[in-house]
Design a protein around this nucleic acid. Structure first.
Lengths: 140, 140
DNA sequence: TCAAGATTTAGACTAAATCTAAATCAGTGG
DNA sequence: CCACTGATTTAGATTTAGTCTAAATCTTGA
């Protein structure tokens, strides 16, 4: 089970000759500990608890850098970007009622599609989004 | 092969007691004829060719109404909404390089996932996005 | 044709995200 | 330990997508 980790990010920052700032650390530590799929706004609020001066630009810059370096992935829900610190290949379930996003094990979904795909396309990956009602919303 | 059609929309508008305005017709006719997955901006520009006074609000209102009435679906790509007049169940391929979205036949992808899904969830549907390089980008 | 009320319009407004230029800071060499 | 350098952060302006509003306009049924 692979997940965004402070150690990996600090190593990567050093390997790239970049600077290890407390803001970057705070962002990574929040994402690491966060159970769900926070928005950029969520991250900014959390970082602000430690650094009231933290700028949105810093949050966005860091999130984008983490994404470009494979330490984070981005999912879109209702046009809002959410960030996903779970680095194992996986899919998502989105609740129609409460909007929560849950991770779905990669193997729970039938594997690579096999037939009638467009010719000459180079398919690098696929993602599946299940939609419906989560356990809590289905019960009520 | 089912697709957004002017006739269906006009019938639906009448059945609902709503008004058949030339702006709505222009929007539907553009979507009907459009081969790809236009953004709201694309639709607005196209409608403006006929009605230079057309407001963005009209375009958004109409697109949302069509969506709510099952005449259109919305897909998100890089945080931008695109609209899809193809009403057959289907999936999508997104080119990493040029960003084009192509429709993928529903049966090309393995069917309903069967195992290890979260308990007590009510799964109503799923959609698959294939990612990679389209034929043109893969060739170059 | 007329009236009612649904629809359209222009533009203000909101939210998400990016950009900018000046101030600050992390990390290296001395 | 200090100073230096350029990477980073900051506040705030800007951009972009989309929504909202109130007044003007248009479709439709009678």
């Amino acid at each position: 089970m692979k997940r965004l980790a402070t150690q990996d990010v600090t190593d990567l920052i050093r390997a790239r000759g970049l600077k290890l700032t407390p803001q970057r650390l705070a962002i990574v530590e929040y994402l690491q500990a966060c159970p769900g799929h926070p928005t950029a706004e969520d991250v900014w609020k959390a970082v602000n608890a430690k650094f009231p001066m933290a700028s949105r630009a810093t949050v966005y810059n860091t999130l984008n850098w983490l994404k470009e370096n494979g330490q984070l992935s981005e999912i879109q829900q209702d046009g809002v970007a959410r960030f996903d610190p779970n680095l194992d290949p996986h899919h998502h379930f989105v609740c129609r009622r409460c909007g929560r996003v849950e991770d779905i094990d990669y193997d729970a979904v039938a594997p690579w599609p096999q037939c009638a795909l467009p010719e000459r396309h180079l398919i690098e990956g696929f993602d599946v989004t299940l939609r419906g009602l989560c356990a809590i919303c289905a019960a009520s």
